[in-house]
Design a protein around this nucleic acid. Structure first.
Lengths: 338, 338
DNA sequence: GCTGGCACTCGGATGTGAAGAGTGCCAGGT
DNA sequence: ACCTGGCACTCTTCACATCCGAGTGCCAGC
């Protein structure tokens, strides 16, 4: 087990390295942090920390930098979450309050997170399947053409065109709309498939084909893979990554463009509470030199989606976690109001 | 006026520089292009071209690279648009045909453009004001809460919440819906403000406030600044920019995140035909070392929005222009079908 | 007006040396 | 048992000098 002081040394190393972006040596450490011991002692501690794999030397005769394992220990044991200051909280609230619709909420959230953390922000749209149906609308655009509009309690709106196998009258449409809504309104989207299973049975034989088509389009929209959307922002912050970044930035940008990768990334994170994935803890190779801080957000107690940031492993974890948590909280409030 | 051969020399310089990314010298030119003259002659021509400002030397004793003015001449006079090959056309069509809704069309278009050109792609959503109203839907979500949904002929759907000053009955809602649609359906969004101007007058006094509120929300949605949306992609291609790119890539990423900047950029481009803005021709400073190739697209003859790519001034103009034009054409077709 | 020849320039690569930061280890003190 | 000062050692970094070659501009000759 590591002594208390060694943990302090590790904490100091992480803090200094995050601040300066340069390997930190024993002398500098004793000067900047009042550890009460001499550089030589710190050197011994550092040697021990290196043996345990918490820190490493880029080259002999350079200072130490934390390893992924070192950051992990730092996050788990040595640092808390830095709460936002009151002015920051007010700024967050003000910024988010002006949104006119869900797209706007998400867009503002992304900008906000990117600005607060000075990193790349990722915000997932509220998942359909985890939301509740507010209303399902059917619009007749042409005799055999229906537009299906799904509206969730979080303000998300999804629409699909449906080409019907046969013309579908206004009356039938109104009928379907009414029956559909009476079954699903207020229920969770995840339950919709079962709720509408036997719906076609109540219709005339000539309309049944169309009803089935509409319903299958509805179900397709709810399929996991299709229904997840997200927005990213703050990619310009990647340029602060490091001096070597041609090689670092490329795969990160590629990962960010692959929504599938990002969704998986967020999906892997724990469902409740904040998740921090450091460096190689991320399954996707391109993100091996980044850390991902994510948290679920939702209008009620339950998370309907996640948001987070992607940044270099050398990041200000307490500050980042504080910002992510605060933003998630306010976004949840906004959604609950709308 | 420049002699025919000098123009050929310029063309060769542009082509070689685009290919190799390195300044091109007189000897290499004569070897790779059969100009029929010796390096010494080419040197004279190059000196002349440099005097005229079409090419420049990074340092004495390096080859020449084209200036913005040189590229301009190249694009205007020396190169055409390289048409897509048949397999490429098929690939474009196949890729775009699978889209399920407008978001999907735009997303696929962005990916496609980015892949074809290996540059950053920007696609504007069909402008509301330049589209035609297909349908306006009003949904009652709560006694004093209405959701307004606008549907365009290009498949774009925009929704807004409206908090009504007074409860609004289903009957009144249906009435408003019917009157509204009979006035605006099939008309251009740009004309909507005039078309609905006197609409509140036909309603009972107690409903008039709500009608006015709904209409003003509708009009707000059409305000230029709010209604434009766009999607970008292929930012990972920025890493191919050059060797010095910390400084180059930063402002470009920042510009790309500022939708306002991008919209202005696309807006400045000519309304019909393809526009190429080279280097300093772009008003926005951060894009001074990039070129923007853009073109309008639309379902009919008229452009409803623009799309294009942003890349280094050193880009393959004929190929890029060909790809941009082809994609715009197919997107137009897809929109016309939906 | 084109060409070969030639001197010149300058950037990039390579090499050397000194400086500096940081380490590891050891012997001695508390 | 642990901390400390001292010291030799390692390696990176930077400055400076050198060399090489690509490319140029110019000129005399065809």
């Amino acid at each position: 087990m590591l002594s208390e002081r060694r943990l302090q040394v590790l904490r100091a190393i992480v803090q200094d390295y995050v601040g300066t972006e340069e390997p930190v040596g024993s002398k500098a450490l004793t000067e900047r942090h009042s550890l009460g011991v001499s550089p030589a002692t710190v050197r011994n501690d550092m040697a021990a920390l290196e043996d345990e794999g918490f820190i490493a030397q880029p080259h002999t005769s350079a200072g130490r930098i934390p390893t992924d394992k070192g950051y992990r220990l730092f996050v788990d044991k040595l640092a808390g979450v830095k709460p936002m200051t009151a002015p920051e909280r007010r700024a967050i609230q003000n910024f988010l309050d002006g949104a006119v619709d869900l797209d706007d909420v998400v867009a503002r959230t992304v900008r906000l997170l990117a600005q607060l953390t000075r990193q790349v922000a990722v915000v997932q749209y509220p998942s359909l399947t985890r939301s509740t149906v507010r209303h399902v609308e059917l619009l007749s655009l042409a005799p055999a053409r229906v537009m299906l509009v799904l509206i969730t309690d979080t303000g998300r709106v999804e629409q699909r065109m449906v080409d019907c196998p046969a013309p579908f009258g206004e009356a039938s449409l109104a009928d379907l709309r009414a029956r559909l809504n009476s079954r699903v309104a207020g229920r969770r989207f995840a339950d919709v498939p079962q709720l509408v299973e036997d719906l076609p049975e109540g219709f005339d034989i000539e309309d049944r084909g169309t009803v089935t088509t509409v319903l299958s389009t509805l179900l397709e929209t709810l399929v996991e893979e299709n229904e997840e959307r997200l927005m990213i922002g703050g990619t310009a912050n990647l340029t602060r990554f490091g001096h070597d970044f041609p090689l670092t930035i490329r795969p990160v940008l590629e990962a960010l463009e692959e929504q599938v990768v990002l969704l998986k990334l967020l999906g892997e994170a724990g469902d409740s509470g904040m998740t921090v994935r450091i460096g190689h803890e991320n399954a996707y190779e391109g993100l091996n030199s980044t850390s991902v801080v994510s948290v679920g957000y939702g209008s009620g107690g339950e998370a309907v989606a996640k948001l987070g940031v992607v940044g270099p492993t050398r990041m200000d974890y307490p500050g980042t976690m504080g910002a992510v948590r605060a933003v998630a909280r306010y976004v949840g409030q906004i959604l609950a109001e709308s």
